[in-house]
Design a binder for these strands. Structure first.
Lengths: 202, 202
DNA sequence: CCCACAACTTGACACTGACAAGATTGCCCG
DNA sequence: CGGGCAATCTTGTCAGTGTCAAGTTGTGGG
């Protein structure tokens, strides 16, 4: 009631009525609002009723697009894995994939957080599993395409190592655990150094 | 059912009633119950009232020991950092510290999860910050005590790398993201291989 | 044109965290 | 020994939440 029409006037043609019963793109509105809340205060602070208020709809409207709270978070995670897959796919080499992984976590912190919080997700959701598989394929491809100078190490282990390093760095970064060690240096540049430490082949 | 131990007769109570009005060690009981719930279903599934029910006390009893939900989780995180510090301190070298880090995450998944979920914690809590500082000291000590053959790399960067690798591996492990890559191999042994990949000096 | 379906609303219920005020008890100090 | 005091626990209450059920409104395809 207090937020009749905030600045949610995105792509509507007839922008006269304050609340035209049909929102137009409520699903997207709820998603972006949820991403804002999660990025600011974490997934715990997320309230479906609050999201509905922000979008200017009734408290039960979100349930029609996402069945319940878990459904909303699952949709976010699926979207995140899709974005990540696309990002990794364009990587030049494995180190670049790692850099992009870290960049993704920083640019999409809400997605990243939810993607790796399995208790919040519907594990058997189709969109989620397919998107996750896509991201996994992209990661595996980046690993196998690495310059195979280190023949002695199993490619699978190299993949685990690369993923662990990137994931740990990104996670600690988002949790503000590396503020003083990294300082004001560019995190991506720091990670590049870490990656060379892992795979120094030449 | 729940009222069988309240309204007891007015006996002396020195040797008769096992658990009268006063629980005895309610704080510990709530903590361990909370750890069970978190390990099973994550911190989101945690309900103060449910914990009170499990302990056989009234719904408002936990609030006396931990001010609120955040207070309970903060206490868990502080305890976790204390345990971690003690574990890391006993490490032989840096690789052993990493192995112990991973082992800690697997043996105390609830602690580990809460420790690195800053939105759930009271950041300025004294016990938490001191325990965290202790753990940080132990980690830093393990890093600086490493065999300094790799002169070229900054010790600080080496610390970030080691922590990132261990933390990422542990996190992915807990999130069940490494089930098929690791397979039935011992995770600690797998991590040992990763660690040697990071620091191969000879 | 109309009607079946999608989008949204209203209402209700059980549950939760948090607060306030009262009850009970261990125990310290006289 | 015993009285009071503070810690511990209870009862009661309130606003807020997720989720279900049933009704209302708009819209696009036959």
């Amino acid at each position: 009631m207090r937020t009749l029409l905030t600045m949610t006037e995105k792509t509507d043609g007839a922008t006269k009525t304050p609340r035209p019963y049909h929102h137009g793109d409520l699903r997207r509105a709820i998603l972006t609002a949820a991403l804002d809340v999660i990025a600011a205060d974490g997934p715990f602070a997320l309230s479906l009723r609050d999201l509905a208020r922000r979008a200017g709809v009734s408290h039960a409207a979100p349930a029609h697009h996402f069945k319940d709270r878990t459904g909303l978070l699952t949709a976010i995670a699926a979207e995140g894995f899709g974005l990540l897959a696309q990002t990794i796919r364009d990587a030049a080499d494995l180190k670049d994939a790692g850099v992009r992984y870290v960049r993704f976590a920083r640019e999409h912190p809400a997605h990243f957080q939810v993607m790796f919080a399995p208790d919040l997700l519907r594990a058997d959701d189709l969109e989620l599993t397919t998107a996750r598989a896509l991201a996994g394929d992209a990661l595996r491809e980046a690993v196998t395409a690495v310059n195979p100078e280190n023949r002695g190490t199993d490619a699978r282990l190299a993949g685990i190592a690369a993923w662990s390093l990137a994931h740990g760095f990104a996670t600690l970064l988002l949790g503000r655990n590396l503020d003083d060690p990294v300082g004001d240096r560019d995190p991506e540049e720091v990670f590049r150094t870490l990656a060379t430490m892992l795979f120094r082949s030449a």
